[in-house]
C-alpha cells in the first residue's frame, strides 16, 4: 500500500510539472495559432530527416552520447578540483 502511495505521489508530481510545461510551452490554442502549422507528412522527426527504420550503421549516436556525458563529468570534476584547492598560506 505504501508503494502505491509513493507511485501516486511520483505520478502526481510528474503530472503537475508536465501540466505546467504544457501550459508554458503553449499547448493551448492561442499559442498554437502563432506557430507555423505543419502539413501532414511534415511531421517532425527526431535527430535527422532521413527515413529511419533502424539498423542503418554503427551506433554513432550512442558513442556521441557517451562522449557528451564524459565531457560533462570531466568538466564537473575539474571544476570541483579547482574550487577545492586550498590557497597557499602567504608568508608575511
Amino acid at each position: 500500500m505504501t508503494t502505491l502511495y509513493r507511485i501516486l505521489i511520483i505520478l502526481v508530481v510528474a503530472s503537475i510539472i508536465g501540466g505546467a510545461i504544457y501550459m508554458a510551452v503553449g499547448g493551448g490554442s492561442a499559442a498554437n495559432q502563432q506557430q507555423p502549422q505543419m502539413r501532414s507528412g511534415d511531421r517532425p522527426r527526431p535527430e535527422g530527416g532521413e527515413d529511419r527504420e533502424g539498423g542503418d550503421g554503427l551506433p554513432f549516436g550512442i558513442l556521441k552520447s557517451l562522449v557528451i556525458m564524459s565531457v560533462a563529468s570531466g568538466v564537473y570534476l575539474a571544476g570541483n578540483k579547482l574550487l577545492s584547492k586550498k590557497p597557499k598560506p602567504v608568508l608575511a
Partner: peptide, 15 residues
C-alpha cells in the same frame, strides 16, 4: 537510455 538517445540506429518505434 543510450539506445533511446540514438533513434537513427534503433528506429523511431523502438525509440
Amino acid at each position: 537510455f543510450l539506445v533511446a538517445m540514438d533513434p537513427r540506429t534503433s528506429g523511431i518505434a523502438i525509440h
